[in-house]
Nucleic acid binder design. Sequence first.
DNA 1: TCTGGGGTCCTTAGCCCT
DNA 2: TCTGAGGGCTAAGGACCC
Length: 494
Amino acid sequence: MRAAPTILHLDMDAFYASVEQASKPSLLGKAVIVGGLGPRGVVATASYEARRFGVHSAMPMAQARRLCPNGACLIPRFSLYRDVSDIVMALLRELSPLVEPLSLDEAFVDLEAGGTAFDSEAARATGERLRADIRAATGLSGSVGLAGSKMLAKVASEEAKPAGLLLIEPGTERELLAPMSVRTLPGVGPATGEHLRRAGITTVGELAEAGEDELVRMLGRSHGVGLYRMALGLDDRPVVAERDAKSVSVEDTFDVDLHDRVRIRGEVQRLADRCVQRLRGSGHSGRTIVLKVRRYDFSTLTRSETLRGPTDDPAVVREAAARLLEGVDTTGGVRLLGVGVTGLADYTQEDLFAQSLAAGTLAAEADGEGGDGGGHGSEGAEPGGPPGEGGAAAVGVQAPTAPDQAPGPEGQPGAPGGAEPAPERRWPPGSDVRHALYGPGWVQGSGVGRVTVRFEQPGSPPGRVRTFRVDDPDLEPSDPLPLVGDAEPDGQTA
DNA sequence: TCTGGGGTCCTTAGCCCT
DNA sequence: TCTGAGGGCTAAGGACCC
């Protein structure tokens, strides 16, 4: 391990919730919960105000609402978070070319490689400056950890939260780690934590005392050796700037379990198409198709099939996913379906061409695909009629119209619904809107044909609330406004 | 009214080949 | 021809992370 604490770990504080508070001034200092709002939604991030009520990430949203009934529950706005993240990551890249993003709100930086800092003094100064720069550029706060390794830098930023900075001086690691819970170490989750607890190991110090052999015996070679080293404060993993994606997948959890086999097939086809869209978007093709099924009892199984060559052909992926589904028993119902592609290769025209030759892919097959599956698979469910069990309205909860359109619009606003009579517009809480007269605002809630909007924007004083009919022609969805800088002059916030 | 979505990595087991 | 070891690949599941 290096001598100087020049690995920096940045962790933005309650990122999604903080972005929401910054862009919605009336929520500053209030409990904000960001996550899925459906009956099976979970919390992605809670503001520190909400955490005081016991709300935390991965908690079912229903439970969060119970604990914190006055909290503002909002859907995530990933495009905005990505924009803010881009600003933060750009600031990190000014410090060093070696920046390793872990997610939208977290990254490692190798300060030494950037020539930014070679000792504790300089590292600390750099960290403080970074925090100030992030606040100036985004209005948000982040926590900084500095240490001689990635693992320790991450532990440090966790300890520094919220809005702090902690530097671990070389030589003090073991002493610092010893009393901490084993769960502090990366790679120790609920299962490993429980495994260790049963062996009487609850702290990092006890982990180190157990010895490498014992940990290997308990947890296997890779995990055992890795954990033992971490317990000693040893971690020589380098900061890696570019990481190639290894898989691409999409999955959907349904508000109500799906029973109807025809519907399930339709959903798998949809997911396959979405997956290929993402695959192509990332400039990849892939060789192994994976189907994921979570059943009514939460048991999860995967089935996979490896093709002769990589593909990004939707028809090929659809067919593979359909074949895999045929081998899965779905009686009892499914709550989640997913389609993924692994074994990624860089997309090239040659790949595509080779694949169509290898798999004998025909464009005609893509269109006539239903023929194969529908032919022998007509279990019950008459073609046009509503499938049984009320599974039909499962995904589009609040779309009482046209319950039986087979691959129904999914739970996203503005999903393509075909050329039906204008579907009722939906206004998810937290989403951005613009009113012809009142300017930019956000949806505070909607129901019984009404939508309530608060008219405010980043940097404005808390705004007023007004209620409209859901089909008010003056009201329309809009893009998020940047957190800092060009606020709109026309926003009436009085 | 339990438990999202998008990932990575590891382990185990079976099969095929040398 | 049989047997065993070991490597590579595939499939499935599990743990973990944010």
